[in-house]
Design a protein around this nucleic acid. Sequence first.
DNA 1: CAGCTCATGTGAAAGGGGCTTACATCACGG
DNA 2: CCGTGATGTAAGCCCCTTTCACATGAGCTG
Lengths: 211, 211
Amino acid sequence: MSWTKNGGESRGYHHGNLREALMKAALELIAEKGTAGATFAEAARRAGVSPAAPYRHFRDRDELIAAVAAEGFERFTKALQAGWNEGRPTPVEAYERMGRAYLDFARGNPAEYVAMFETGLSTEAHPALDQAGQRAFGVLREAAEVVVASMPAAGRPPALMVALHTWALAHGVASLFGRSDGSRRKLPMPPEDLLEAAFLVYLRGLGAPGN
Amino acid sequence: MSWTKNGGESRGYHHGNLREALMKAALELIAEKGTAGATFAEAARRAGVSPAAPYRHFRDRDELIAAVAAEGFERFTKALQAGWNEGRPTPVEAYERMGRAYLDFARGNPAEYVAMFETGLSTEAHPALDQAGQRAFGVLREAAEVVVASMPAAGRPPALMVALHTWALAHGVASLFGRSDGSRRKLPMPPEDLLEAAFLVYLRGLGAPGN
DNA sequence: CAGCTCATGTGAAAGGGGCTTACATCACGG
DNA sequence: CCGTGATGTAAGCCCCTTTCACATGAGCTG
């Protein structure tokens, strides 16, 4: 369609937007064939260039995937922030809405989610990716701090722990049940409801205000 | 070393244990190079046979991986059962110990865990694998039923929901923090403790006896 | 023990695909 | 107008996959 620069003129020798086109192609490939299917050459083919062209933009396949994952984390961060909405109307309600936003993202962007969490690329080799991930977690953590602060002062749990538990729970639900690629477990209820119920139980266990 | 039948004599024309040797090689490859690195030919090479030999035992690469994952689920089931230990001495204590067993398995068998949960092979195409996974979940579910039954009759939560929450939590912790391949997030505490704390909070939220 | 049979492994070769080195083309600045 | 660097190409190399005919030997049968 529009791998052209200005959205109309046919491309000449140079692509003009190859970097983005490759990332888009990589996403499609992950969605279709899984992580292993996202090959460097195939992405080039979909972008309409020769197999060697990608090397001008990414050192190797991992760097392409890392770029995709990093962009995924950017959008993920925004999605979580939108769900949290600065803790309005109440911290607990906002927290649950953020949980739904988490699952919505995982469900609506399965390829990004895979790239972000299941590619197994080391954080040391890709520091930019690591930082993007930590920014996303920062949203969770700040939200957890607000929720904890809204609780009775006696026996407040550490906000970091709450944030980690939340992340683990949301990721677990998303990873096990949250995608519909057929390779996932069947569930007698929507994963959003499962996660919301878990949040409610967990927050009650923390002693949070009863919503 | 010992791809021989009786652990000593050099092999002749026939391997004698090729199926197991291939599965072992596949595990090593997953551990070393990730899911994508587990190639059929390389597994054959490590087993000391020709590239065509594996086809006598597995239809294709996916079936090899599925066999590895299925065997992983078998051992996983036993590990969970051992942790649960029929709910002794108390259901809640046993439940937490089962959670530790979950993480121990994920940590001690990272390649199996990847094969079991991150290969994305469809449950329909590999029914034996699906059943093995459901047997493992059965342990969780039965344990959840005992825990729920030990609670006050008024307002008991559905055991299935509890089991699913537990699984999501344990898988989330294991997947995000539980492995030490360097591609995982750093944590200010051992993942076992993180999970145990989550269990405690969650069970308290359920209204479980205070341990 | 002799011979049959079948499961198991070999060898070779076709086919496909990804990766990478040397070369071609274009954009841009002086 | 021309150099220079960025970008894309072409072609070759290598490895994986898969299949086929064939070799081997383990175990049964008598």
